[in-house]
């Protein structure tokens, strides 16, 4: 479970990146956070991962305050970034092995890694190939495998479908649905309204650091999410 209570971040240059965010993502829930560039989506993820310190409020992962117990909280969260680069001179399996060990899974065998890679749709011949030869989609799949192997109850994804071809993006979404079925809380920042409509249980729209709207699946399917989102974006353009 992920919780943000009045979570605020103001940078040194006084820019308000996140303004009193209150949010709760339950077990087995997929939450999509939509918003323009600079709206505060990545800042939210950075705060949950304690990459930056909040200037107000708190972020909780499974009830653990990430600022007070940063290391402990990371036992319960996995992260997939927008552009998973990994170690180019390591094979996919070597990368998995390294991050699995960091994620607290030191005793996995080669077969375990192969099985997980098969599950995310990676081809057999790619397992022992160097990551530098991989396409972005393949790297994203390896990144997701890393998150899956960690087997944390919460998964944070930062625009994982950006730059992916539709097929790869669809495969990724299917994996997220499977993870949701396993009871994982999934928090994904994206611009991709189409994917949000497909799999999200709830959707939030962020604008200039504020969570301006949250809709459940039933609500956004009824109200036409695309229209709502575009309205918010247009307002922002007019304001500017």
């Amino acid at each position: 479970m992920l919780q943000a209570i009045d979570l605020t971040k103001r940078y040194e240059d006084q820019e308000l990146a996140l303004d009193a965010l209150n949010l709760e993502i339950k077990e087995g829930e997929i939450f999509f956070l939509l918003g323009a560039n600079g709206a505060g989506k990545t800042t939210t993820i950075n705060l949950f991962l304690n990459f930056i310190e909040p200037t107000g409020g708190k972020a909780l992962i499974n009830g653990i305050d990430v600022t007070k117990e940063p290391l402990e909280s990371k036992k319960y969260v996995s992260y997939v970034s927008e552009n998973v680069m990994l170690y180019g001179n390591f094979t996919a399996r070597q990368n998995l092995d390294f991050f699995a060990k960091l994620g607290g899974k030191p005793n996995l065998s080669k077969e375990d890694y192969y099985m997980q890679m098969r599950e995310v749709g990676l081809q057999e011949e790619a397992f022992e190939k160097k990551i530098k030869t991989f396409s972005k989609g393949m790297r994203q799949k390896v990144g997701l495998t890393i998150a899956i192997i960690k087997d944390a109850p919460n998964i944070l994804l930062d625009e994982p479908t950006a730059g992916l071809d539709p097929k790869a993006a669809a495969e990724l979404m299917q994996i997220l649905v499977n993870l949701k079925r396993q009871g994982k809380s999934i928090f994904m920042c994206t611009h991709d309204i189409f994917r949000a409509k497909n799999i999200a249980d709830r959707v939030g729209i962020m604008k200039e650091g504020r969570l301006v709207m949250v809709r459940t699946r039933e609500e956004f399917l009824e109200d036409d999410l695309e229209k709502i989102y575009m309205n918010y974006m247009q307002e922002m353009v007019i304001e500017k």
């Binding site: 991962l49 996995s78 970034s81 680069m85 990994l86 991050f99």
Partner: peptide, 14 residues
């Protein structure tokens, strides 16, 4: 630059 730093520190790594 390669983004691995964020991935490492998303784990139980001080």
């Amino acid at each position: 630059e390669e983004g691995t730093l964020r991935l490492i520190f998303s784990n139980y790594t001080g």
